[in-house]
Nucleic acid binder design. Structure first.
Lengths: 209, 209
DNA sequence: TCTCAAATTGCGTGCTGCGCACCATGTGCG
DNA sequence: CGCACATGGTGCGCAGCACGCAATTTGAGA
């Protein structure tokens, strides 16, 4: 997980990936609304300092490149939950973990708006947020001791949390000045996580099979 | 909503749309795993009895065509909930509506597997399921009297429900013979909807802001 | 019947995704 | 220290796709 622990080659690869995705998002934003269609692959590659062929070795579509940051962030959702104290109730741990993860840098309004409000990017944006579901479901299963093969609770909760994060983001973009993203995120998450703790005591029943 | 109530032109258009999407999904399934890349736009158009140009008038990508049925079904989620008795509690109404909607024809295993288990279709599949969120959120807001502009509850719940449906579908595909889709769907939905009724009484508090 | 709007189609174009072969640069071994 | 290998970057080229445009056909309404 730590860059310093990796090979030089691996680090370079990571750097290149970030350079490309960063350039892609930046260029799209600079072109203003409807900027996606104007940004050509060649532009992104040039801005990132690589050939257009190399760009394609990392991403198979502009949408994927632009949403890469959001996707990478979501992938860390499992770790974010796992790093919470084990004795913390699931609902509190989930909220704390998500707030910590998604407000590490306070999200960039322009970037998030580009990702979430561009029709052509809709599918990729959903994909980016749903990247959190797998790791998150595993972390929830590990924390509660529920076997995800027999009980849908971990996967469903993970999906609900990911959905709440997405809704919070959209709301934060629309009613911009109404508060910090952290506050909105908490409020969104509290709509779905309260159901969670009720399940926890049933571990013995659930894990029995 | 009823075909008979529409113009002849509108009906024809609907028929063409279904013919194309049906042909797209069928051809992809026939090609077996990895069938997506093998199916050309020309094949789909020919199978549907239209020109490839007309195909593009209806869909802007193969993925969109293949997932059209799923998307159309999801769009009816709001109506499904609205048509439940007004005095039915939200959680029961939600479960009943979703079960009714998504098991009207018992889903086709091959089709659902194609949509949900093909990486290239992942974004479009998520889009298809998330189509339910908007209408569903409106229906929830109308039923509970909550103003979606000030309270995230309708949108978050809608996203959670849509996510639960998706997870249920995936689980139904994997552990195929474990039960009917309706049963799995109920079990998935009960992981997220119980939180709902608790919110209803707080309308005055929430709407105050 | 006549006129208008909507839908289908063929054609042409620019871009994209990707396979292939070649080259450059880290990496590990004797 | 030097050498062979593996990994990743690059240039080239192709097939397919999305879409704008303009002509034609067909349903809708007066």
């Amino acid at each position: 997980m730590n860059d310093d622990a990796m090979d030089l080659r691996t680090r370079m690869r990571q750097t290149t990936r970030e350079a490309i995705s960063h350039a892609a998002l930046r260029l799209a934003i600079e072109q203003g609304p409807n900027g996606l269609v104007l940004v050509r692959v060649q532009d992104i590659a040039t801005a990132a300092g690589v050939s257009s062929r190399t760009y394609n070795n990392y991403f198979s579509s502009r949408a994927e490149a632009i949403c890469a940051f959001q996707a990478d962030q979501s992938k860390r959702a499992g770790d974010a939950l796992s790093s919470r104290p084990a004795d913390e109730p699931l609902d509190e741990a989930l909220i704390a973990a998500m707030v910590e993860l998604y407000t590490d840098p306070e999200p960039d309004r322009a970037g998030l708006r580009m990702i979430m409000s561009t029709p052509e990017l809709e599918g990729e944006a959903l994909k980016a947020f749903s990247m959190a579901e797998g790791p998150l479901a595993e972390a929830i299963a590990a924390r509660t001791g529920i076997d995800p093969g027999y009980d849908l609770f971990p996967a469903v909760t993970a999906a609900a949390v990911a959905g709440a994060v997405r809704v919070a983001g959209r709301h934060w973009l629309e009613a911009g000045d109404s508060g910090s993203f952290a506050a909105i995120l908490r409020s969104a998450l509290s709509c779905v996580v309260p159901a969670a703790p009720l399940q926890a005591p049933k571990i013995s029943d659930r894990a029995a099979n």
